[in-house]
Amino acid sequence: MTFGKERHRREYFRLRLDPPLFADMTIVLIKGKSLEVGSAKVLIEDIGGGGLRFLSHLKMPANDQLVLQFETLLQDEPLKMYGHILRTAIWGEKFYEYAVRFTMEEAQHLEINRIVNRYVIRSRQNRQVRGEHFLQGDREQFLEEQARLSLQTTPAR
C-alpha cells in the first residue's frame, strides 16, 4: 500500500492503492439521458474525496456529458460514486487509464474522504487491511480477462 499526496494541488487527500481496488463501473447518463446498460469491472488506482483514477479495457472519451457510476467496498463500507472523465491516456499497449472528477453533493465528497482517511489510519496501524476487493494478480492479465469476457457477452449483430 502506498500512501502520499499526488504532486498536483488537490482539494482532497488522494490515496494511491497498490494493489488496486476492484469496482463496478456503469455509464448512467449521456448528454443528460439515462441509460440502462450493464457494468464493467475496473481497477481503481487512487481515490480521494474529489475523484479517482482507474484502469479499464474500455475506450471512452473525456467528456463531462458522460456520467459514470462506480460501486465498490473499502473496509467493508460500500461506496457509490458518480463522476465524469477529465483525462484519458493509453495504459500499456491496449488499455486505458482515466482520471475522474466526482459530480456529487459536498456531503458525499466528505463521506468518501472520511472512509479513505479511516482506511489510511487502519492501514498504518495494521498492515492486514486488504481484502477480497483488491486485485491479487497482474493488472494487465486482469484487463485482458475483462476484455475477453466482454467480447463473449456482446450480442452478435
Rank of each mutant, 00 (worst) to 15 (best):
residue 1 M to F: 13
residue 2 T to A: 09
residue 4 G to P: 12
residue 6 E to R: 15
residue 7 R to Q: 12
residue 7 R to K: 14
residue 16 R to Q: 13
residue 17 L to V: 00
residue 17 L to W: 02
residue 19 P to I: 11
residue 20 P to H: 04
residue 21 L to H: 08
residue 21 L to R: 12
residue 23 A to T: 13
residue 23 A to L: 09
residue 28 V to Y: 05
residue 30 I to W: 06
residue 30 I to S: 10
residue 30 I to G: 01
residue 31 K to D: 09
residue 34 S to M: 10
residue 34 S to N: 08
residue 35 L to S: 04
residue 35 L to V: 13
residue 37 V to E: 12
residue 38 G to M: 04
residue 40 A to D: 15
residue 40 A to E: 14
residue 40 A to G: 06
residue 40 A to M: 09
residue 41 K to T: 11
residue 41 K to S: 13
residue 44 I to E: 13
residue 44 I to V: 07
residue 44 I to W: 14
residue 45 E to R: 11
residue 46 D to F: 00
residue 48 G to N: 03
residue 50 G to E: 11
residue 50 G to Q: 03
residue 50 G to F: 10
residue 52 L to G: 01
residue 53 R to P: 01
residue 53 R to G: 02
residue 54 F to I: 02
residue 56 S to P: 11
residue 60 M to V: 00
residue 63 N to M: 07
residue 64 D to G: 03
residue 65 Q to L: 00
residue 65 Q to V: 06
residue 66 L to W: 04
residue 66 L to Y: 10
residue 66 L to T: 12
residue 67 V to E: 06
residue 69 Q to T: 04
residue 69 Q to N: 06
residue 70 F to G: 06
residue 72 T to V: 03
residue 72 T to M: 00
residue 75 Q to T: 03
residue 75 Q to A: 02
residue 76 D to V: 00
residue 76 D to P: 00
residue 79 L to K: 02
residue 80 K to H: 07
residue 81 M to L: 13
residue 81 M to V: 03
residue 82 Y to W: 07
residue 83 G to Y: 09
residue 83 G to N: 00
residue 85 I to C: 02
residue 86 L to S: 03
residue 86 L to T: 05
residue 87 R to H: 04
residue 87 R to Y: 03
residue 89 A to W: 03
residue 89 A to V: 01
residue 90 I to Y: 01
residue 94 K to S: 14
residue 94 K to E: 11
residue 94 K to P: 06
residue 95 F to E: 09
residue 95 F to K: 09
residue 96 Y to S: 06
residue 97 E to C: 07
residue 97 E to S: 15
residue 100 V to G: 12
residue 103 T to V: 08
residue 110 L to Q: 14
residue 114 R to K: 07
residue 114 R to A: 12
residue 115 I to S: 03
residue 115 I to M: 10
residue 115 I to Y: 11
residue 116 V to T: 07
residue 116 V to I: 12
residue 116 V to N: 06
residue 118 R to H: 06
residue 119 Y to C: 10
residue 121 I to L: 04
residue 122 R to P: 04
residue 123 S to V: 03
residue 123 S to I: 04
residue 124 R to Q: 14
residue 124 R to L: 15
residue 125 Q to G: 11
residue 127 R to W: 05
residue 128 Q to F: 15
residue 128 Q to H: 14
residue 130 R to Q: 15
residue 130 R to K: 09
residue 130 R to L: 10
residue 131 G to A: 08
residue 134 F to A: 05
residue 134 F to C: 02
residue 135 L to K: 00
residue 135 L to E: 08
residue 136 Q to M: 10
residue 137 G to H: 04
residue 137 G to S: 14
residue 139 R to G: 04
residue 142 F to L: 01
residue 144 E to V: 00
residue 145 E to S: 11
residue 146 Q to E: 15
residue 147 A to C: 05
residue 148 R to A: 08
residue 149 L to T: 09
residue 150 S to H: 06
residue 150 S to W: 06
residue 150 S to G: 00
residue 150 S to T: 02
residue 151 L to C: 04
residue 151 L to Q: 15
residue 152 Q to T: 05
residue 152 Q to D: 08
residue 153 T to E: 11
residue 154 T to G: 05
residue 154 T to F: 05
residue 154 T to V: 10
residue 156 A to Q: 13
